[in-house]
Design a protein around this nucleic acid. Structure first.
Lengths: 250, 250
DNA sequence: GAGTGGTCTAGACCACGAG
DNA sequence: TCGTGGTCTAGACCACTCC
């Protein structure tokens, strides 16, 4: 089944450009187009798939943003890479359970505590609220099988929940869904600060590691749609033996 | 000078959508549109700036990819955030000297060595060449003022340079230009693996830190246009006190 | 129902790369 | 000079949100 044996399903509600991007991606991943090969020119795809050139360009843009291809004006569109590595794109919008499942693990979550705190100076800056204001705090460990993979601390300002204590429903495993329900807002973006840290104190026990083992810390600020104030601030410590992150510069 | 006081310069060779994106970005950064505000609807921008709606959409897509705005179908386009933090986007295409300059430091580079090695198994996989094949190796430290900021090791397969030893011209400070000249290829993308490590042995001396201090390691594989084989593989250790990375999930 | 962003078309001309 | 991707236009209809 090569690329041109297939076509766009015009009755399918999936946008044409998404369908075409999928076909092209499959052709790349199946090896029909190898690294360094050029893709068929846009005008050829246009006539072959009976769509407008803009639609073709939209499809190729999808692949470009994924890092599958790059375009050279005057020359063509070329297959970049496709190094299938067991790494998670650090800019991917994925929550912890799904992430570990993607890496082939059986994930589980163990809650360590769930309390009400008062915001200190650092937190008040991160969540844009007053020092001393009530914040809901939850922390826990996500396991990959029986290995501790991620230690998480999350803070949610009580003003964002209307003062209501967030009820974590264990049947609802998707953190962002939980967050959206709790604050009644839609998550639009997550700011991430990346830093390396070492295990010390409590962290050693959580990760069952000696002192001074490296961990990756991602500090996440979740931004919502309706209220410009951050929805939550969290610290996520990743066991580098289990969760490996990657990025791509193009 | 508000947004609608300005217009697109049609004699300017800068694409209209770039000009419009710049105007919108300035309006956001100047505070004319605050976080959570909605941008003017696309059809209003279309008529105000006398461009087609596609061009307006292209401009807004630029801002969206930068994380400045996000779109909600049926509602509008909203200013996300532009948390002005002194962090470097990890997916930004910037080399070390420019990066440190951006952070307000006076950068300098000190070469530690420049040698020819034979590829070990790990390198042979990364550079896609045979074990034992000749590789050029260079390592050094980039300083931020007088503080060590980045320790770098770079490997370039000798087959990619035609066997010629790369001559690092100290007047040419931009690494990618150097790389492109050396291998006669165009850099198209850089794969990055992100991991936390701790100082040990030689690294302690390079960074003037005690053992077990955290460092961020970015392993970079540089991909070129014409030859699908990687151009270079490098290890970059960042002092987290000086270089802070961020990412954005949208 | 009115207004918003999302998709799509069928053209056009320009800028660049390579032969 | 020719083929490529880059930009741009002026429409059209759909899907969704909000009133």
């Amino acid at each position: 089944m090569t690329l041109f044996d297939q076509s766009i399903d015009r009755r399918n509600k999936t946008p044409f450009y998404v369908q075409l991007a999928n076909l092209l991606r499959e052709a790349i991943e199946s090896g029909e187009f190898k690294r360094g090969d050029s893709l068929p020119p846009e005008r050829e795809l246009e006539s072959s798939f009976m769509v407008s050139r803009n639609t073709v360009r939209q499809a190729i843009t999808v692949l470009e943003n994924e890092g599958h291809v790059h375009r050279i004006r005057g020359s063509g569109t070329f297959v970049t890479q496709a190094s299938p590595n067991p790494h998670i794109r650090i800019d991917a919008f994925i929550e912890h359970m799904g992430l570990l499942r993607l890496l082939g693990y059986e994930p589980s979550y163990k809650q360590l505590s769930n309390e009400i705190k008062n915001a200190d100076v650092y937190l008040s800056e991160k969540l844009e609220l007053k020092v001393g204001e009530k914040v809901f705090f939850r922390r826990g460990i996500t396991f990959a099988g029986d290995q501790p993979a991620i230690y998480t601390e999350v803070y949610i300002g009580s003003s964002r929940t209307g003062g209501v204590e967030p009820a974590w429903d264990p049947t609802n495993k998707v953190f962002f869904d939980f967050l959206e329900k709790v604050v009644g807002d839609i998550v639009t973006s997550v700011d991430i600060d990346i830093s390396p840290v070492v295990t010390e104190g409590e962290l050693c026990a959580h990760f069952d590691k000696p002192e001074c083992s490296p961990l990756l810390l991602l500090e996440t600020t979740v931004i919502g749609l309706h209220d410009p104030k951050p929805i939550s601030f969290g610290r996520n410590y990743y066991n580098p033996e289990i969760v490996k992150f990657s990025a791509l510069r193009t």
